[in-house]
Amino acid sequence: MAQLADTERPFEFMSRLNLTLLTDLRARDAAELLEHLRVVPGAVIYHHTHHFLVQHQYLSPEPPNDFAFWVSNMLLEERLGEELAAVDVLRFATIHELREALVHVIENFLEGCTNLRVAPPGEEFYFEQSVSFVLPTGIVARNLSQFRDGLAQVSLNSISYHMFDARLRLEQGGDNDFSKWLEAALDEREVAAAMRRLDPYTHTEEGLRRQMIALIDARLHRESERARSG
């Protein structure tokens, strides 16, 4: 594989570990879900749209989000569940926008709803929030080859942080950390764009890791070929 040039702006792989806190809010039907969804902190929206990705790694495609799962399985409102599951998280650059989209879907449903279904006792929707602890992994990349090795080594939490949190929760302009660095520090626009196009919500995180590594390997292979022929 080719050893491409080092950058003076190394990439530091971070990790993010979540502690789940329970709020006092719970919903028994779609109207209560909407009422709380409008006012809960962003950390609650983030939790319920992302923790499935961590807890159900072995499922592919992963269950969409807690709101959709609860509406489909506890309220048995399959149409609303499907619509909530179809909310494309990648379209939004902020938690605020994502919240608005979820609220809009439920509002539309309630407008045409004459008979609200209620969850069985004990199956209410419990609003939880993630407290995120962000820490450096100690793995640093100065070129594409080192970046590829780092990607292979870090935990899925690290990948999740750079792909999901950086893009949506930390509100860094809707881009993931990997693509931003590859483009800005290494001028690897093609790989950066390809990573940006990946929909992380439709892969297991391990699958996402494999895809990203494959993209880099292909790039390094091309560079090797070019060096050999040149």
Binding site: L17, L19, V131, S132, V134, L135
Partner: peptide
């Protein structure tokens, strides 16, 4: 991991994002 995070939450919280 969750126990360690509980300890850190008590010592460094209560923000939603805690940089270590």
């Amino acid at each position: 991991r969750d126990h360690l995070l509980c300890f850190l939450y008590l010592l460094k919280g209560p923000e939603n994002i805690i940089r270590l």
